[in-house]
Write a protein that binds this DNA or RNA. Structure first.
Lengths: 218, 218
DNA sequence: ACACTATTCCATGGATTTATGGAGGAATGT
DNA sequence: ACATTCCTCCATAAATCCATGGAATAGTGT
C-alpha cells in the first residue's frame, strides 16, 4: 500500500482524463456533445474535421471515459458519459477564463468588438413567468430536439432571416444558444438588430441551464 | 465574428488548461499545492521529481494559469491560482473515477486490499460538537500549518508511532489527510490498529473540506 | 566583489501525439 | 451474395512533449 509505482499509476490514470481534454479539437467535440448525442459524421462536419480525424479523437475521449457510444443501424452515436463531464468542461472553461489571459484575448477576437444586451437566467425566468416574451433557440434543429428550454421556439440561426414573420414585431425577443462561449445567440441578436428588431440574449446557454438543474423540454 | 480561425484559437486556449492537466506528474504537483503553497525544491522532493523537471512542470502549470508564484528571498513559492483550480482537480478525479475503469483498478492497487472504517464530514462535525473525539491531521507539518480542520492536532504519519502517548488510550480517534485519494489517513488507522488503538478515518480530506466552504484554522 | 543558494533557461535525444490516407469491419438493402 | 454506408483500425511522417544535465540568473550574506 502506498508505494510510488502504484501512486504514479493512479495519477497517470487521472492524467488520461486530462490528456483527453488537452486538444482544442476534442474540446470542440465535447462542446457539441454537451448539446446532445450525435453520429461521427455529424460531429466531424459540425467541428470541421476529417472523418478519420474525428473518429480518432472520439476514440481518445471514449478511452478516457468521457463519452459512450450507442449503435443504431450503421451509425454510431456518441454522447457524454454523464453530466459530470459537462460540468468538467464548464469548469475548465471557467478556470481558463479566470486565470489565463490568452483565453480572454481569444474570446474577444472570436466574439468581435462590442457586445449585445444580455439577460441572466433568473431574469429570463421572471420574464417568462410574466409572459409576453418570445424565447428563441437559435441552435441547429437537432440540438433543439435533443433538449431545450421550456417554451422556447426553434429558430436556427441560418433560418432566422426567412422566419422574421414568426417573431413579434414589437414584443421582447430573447435568443439563446449552446453556452457562454457560443456565438450563435450574439449573431442572432445582431442579425435581428440589422433588420430593425430589438432582441437580447441569455448570458449563458443550454449547457449551463442543464447544469443548473433547470427543467429541459424535449 | 465567429470565424473558424478565431474559434480554433479560443478552444486551443482552453486546451492549454487541459494540457496542463495531461501529465500525472503535474497532477501530483497540483494535489500537493492544493494543501498550500510550497517552494520548488519542496515540491520536487515531495513529488519525487528532479529539480529541473519539477521546475519545468511548474512553468507549464503557470503558463496555463493554474498556479501563481511569490518570491521570498531566494525561494519561489508556488500556489494554486484560485480555489476553482482545486475544484477542477477534484472534479477531474471524480469524473475519472466515475467513468474510467483504469482509475478504479489503480486506486485499488494503491490503497491495497480491504479498507478502514470511515466517517463522513457531517458525522465528524457531529462528533466534534458532541465532544470526546480526538481528531488528528496526519499530513506533514507544513501542510497542517497552511490550514487544517479546527480542533485537529498535528500528528504527521511518520511521528505517529512515537507520539502514541498523546492520544487517548480508549477515546475515539479520527484521522484525516489530503483528500479522497491520499493514503496517509488509511496508513495511520492501520498503524494505530497494529498498536492496539482503534481509529477511523474521514472519508475525504482537507481538499474537499476546503471546497465545501467549511472553516479552516491556521 | 565574491561565494553561495534557489530557480530558471537552454539543448538534446527519446517518446508520444497528430492529421491523413487506405484497408478492413459491421449493419443494411437488393 | 453483393454493393453500399458508416465507422474503425493501421501505417506514416510531422510536430510536440518529456526527462535530464549543464549554463545562466536573481537574491543573500560576507
Amino acid at each position: 500500500m502506498g508505494d510510488r509505482a502504484a501512486k504514479t499509476e493512479l495519477y497517470e490514470a487521472f492524467a488520461a482524463v486530462g490528456k483527453a481534454l488537452a486538444s482544442g479539437r476534442r474540446l470542440e467535440l465535447v462542446d457539441l456533445l454537451a448539446q446532445g448525442e450525435r453520429s461521427v459524421e455529424a460531429l466531424a462536419q459540425a467541428a470541421g474535421l476529417g472523418l478519420t480525424t474525428a473518429s480518432n479523437h472520439l476514440q481518445v475521449l471514449k478511452q478516457a471515459g468521457l463519452v459512450t457510444t450507442r449503435r443504431q443501424g450503421t451509425k454510431v452515436f456518441y454522447r457524454l458519459a454523464g453530466c459530470d463531464v459537462g460540468a468538467l468542461w464548464a469548469l475548465l472553461r471557467q478556470v481558463g477564463s479566470a486565470h489565463q489571459a490568452e483565453v480572454e484575448r481569444a474570446r474577444a477576437a472570436y466574439f468581435g468588438p462590442g457586445d449585445t444586451e444580455q439577460l441572466t437566467r433568473e431574469q429570463l425566468q421572471e420574464r417568462i413567468a410574466e409572459g409576453g416574451v418570445t424565447l428563441i433557440d437559435v441552435r441547429p434543429g437537432e440540438e433543439y430536439a435533443a433538449g431545450h428550454i421550456p417554451s422556447a421556439l426553434s429558430v436556427p440561426l441560418d433560418q432566422l432571416a426567412d422566419r422574421l414573420d414568426e417573431l413579434p414585431a414589437d414584443g421582447a425577443i430573447v435568443a439563446y444558444c449552446r453556452g457562454a462561449y457560443c456565438v450563435l445567440a450574439r449573431e442572432a441578436v445582431r442579425a435581428l438588430a440589422a433588420r430593425g428588431r430589438h432582441a437580447v440574449r441569455l448570458d449563458e446557454g443550454m449547457l449551463e441551464w442543464r447544469l443548473a438543474g433547470l427543467p429541459v423540454a424535449t
